[in-house]
Design a protein around this nucleic acid. Sequence first.
DNA 1: GACCAGGGCCGGC
DNA 2: GCCGGCCCTGGT
Length: 275
Amino acid sequence: MRETTEYFTEDMDIRQIAASGQCFRMQERKEGLFSLIAGERYLEIQCLEKGKFIFFCSNQEFQEFWYNYFDFGQDYGALKKKVDPKDVYLKNAVEFGWGIRILRQDLWEMMITFILSQQNNIPRIQRCVRLLCENYGRKKVNFRGEEYFSFPSPNKLAEADLEGLKACNLGYRARYIQETALAVAEETVSLEALKKMTYEDARKELMKLCGIGKKVADCICLFALHHVEAFPIDTHIAQILAAHYPDGFPFLQYPGFAGILQQYMFYYDLHGKAE
DNA sequence: GACCAGGGCCGGC
DNA sequence: GCCGGCCCTGGT
């Protein structure tokens, strides 16, 4: 009998998270059943009814890894209540994407993934990541006996030639991936050091790498290092700011967690087009 | 089929 | 600091 772990939270919708553009290896296998590959791990989650989830892993693995991965230590309900009720746009965005959480994903994986994300669309980003894993990751087998591929290590990508990377459909980003992989493999930039830095220091350090500018650095800070004050400004957010916050976003009202609100706004802009 | 934009950044000025 | 250019794909 396969081990499972039940968890209850009203502040999570896996479908929304999968479509939120923060992770690109989560998909719905069938109605309410999601699979996810993170680093070396494979997980499935079943949503039984609103708020009730079955994790297909042992209680130990849940406690040791997935609890933190899904940021269950954070009360998103309390956070959402802090939204200024007079801010109608933000209120609507949070209501629409109520089940979004900020996952605590692997640093290296997010560095590569968000280098790929630039000037790119979500279906193609997913394909790029999948091809990178299939070509350079390790082949593994999930509990169903199906094969899947782990995310490739820095050394593995540092050894890759440009041709091989371009075959993963990366386009001009292939060079960025190669140079960043080399810098990390040679420890010009240290992943472990990055994990200990403040937001400002980590952002600055990340931007030394080829293919990482302000926006990508902020995504890495937000989705891997969990510096939730990071507020990535991409084309969508720039348009939202211009339309709804001509005097600037009220960062002072949301000290230290504006990045979480950014994610609701981004998702609302992508999927909430009621016009 | 054309054309635009996509979770932007690099390199040359 | 300011552009032009960039691989390729989805959407219109």
